[in-house]
Design a protein around this nucleic acid. Sequence first.
DNA 1: TCCTTATTGACATTGATTCTCATTATCACT
DNA 2: AGTGATAATGAGAATCAATGTCAATAAGGA
Lengths: 147, 147
Amino acid sequence: MKDKFKEYASRMTAPREAILEFMSRSSTHLSAKEIYTSLHKKHPGIGMSTVYRTLDLLARMGLVTKLALGDGQNRYEFKAKDKSDHHHHLICTRCGTIINYSEFLEEELTLVRKTEKKLAKKYNFIIEDHNIEFLGICEKCKGSEKI
Amino acid sequence: MKDKFKEYASRMTAPREAILEFMSRSSTHLSAKEIYTSLHKKHPGIGMSTVYRTLDLLARMGLVTKLALGDGQNRYEFKAKDKSDHHHHLICTRCGTIINYSEFLEEELTLVRKTEKKLAKKYNFIIEDHNIEFLGICEKCKGSEKI
DNA sequence: TCCTTATTGACATTGATTCTCATTATCACT
DNA sequence: AGTGATAATGAGAATCAATGTCAATAAGGA
Ligand SMILES: [Mn+2]
Ligand SMILES: [Mn+2]
Ligand SMILES: [Zn+2]
Ligand SMILES: [Zn+2]
């Protein structure tokens, strides 16, 4: 891992190690502040700036995904190298709940690849990633509908 | 249209009409400030707050889509009722360029519907919309790669 | 161990979005 | 057309995520 860091022109430091370790252990979609706060218990020294800078670095390294959901703060999620970790999102527009789903149909993956190829050619684009999200009302919010 | 507004608990006002009219005429993905500035020429009276409030209203009405791309400002796009207007995005992670594409394969639409149905059932979700975006490097940015 | 310099953290600053509130304008009802 | 209740507005303040500044620190090659 130290090597991977160097590749991105960086020294391996304690804060970076702590943040990466923390991210790799959490499975949710966390805001920078949530990460900062959680980390603060064991690592009181780590500042907010470093959290942002490191998350940005990890995103560039491809170890973390940055999610923009339009609620005023970005969220970050660890991305295992393991392909089986790849997933898409189901987002509740009422309460913000995010569900990961990865029970893809084979068709789904095949089609994504086919579409990528088509778009890359037509628009002369290098396609590196994709986001697919379905928006709606979650189970809980459905329940507390009538007020 | 006036009726549609009322349905959403609203009076029809000059600023709202101006903003809706402007949005329906533009075909890009505009930030609130861009909308404010463009509008300011013909309607110097309209304030920033009203732009935000009206965009939010239009989004709730389903006339406008709010895009969160994680670059620190949301963008808004008019959504014609016309189904043929539906499209997905191709986004350059270097320069932010957004390309609409809508040459869907039939498969694509079929699959989205099938996936929606599957997810709705499994997670007990009411699915109302979806976003699909491909990220990468656009033609222009590919050109100015080596610096 | 020493030295260069990448990295850090405290703090300031920016900038998008939201809030506040006195003023204005819409529209239902005469 | 006139009136009144009140929804909506706009100027400015406030909030708050994210970025910038910079002196102090620490990583790691020599
Ligand atoms: Mn996820
Ligand atoms: Mn678009
Ligand atoms: Zn919900
Ligand atoms: Zn580009």
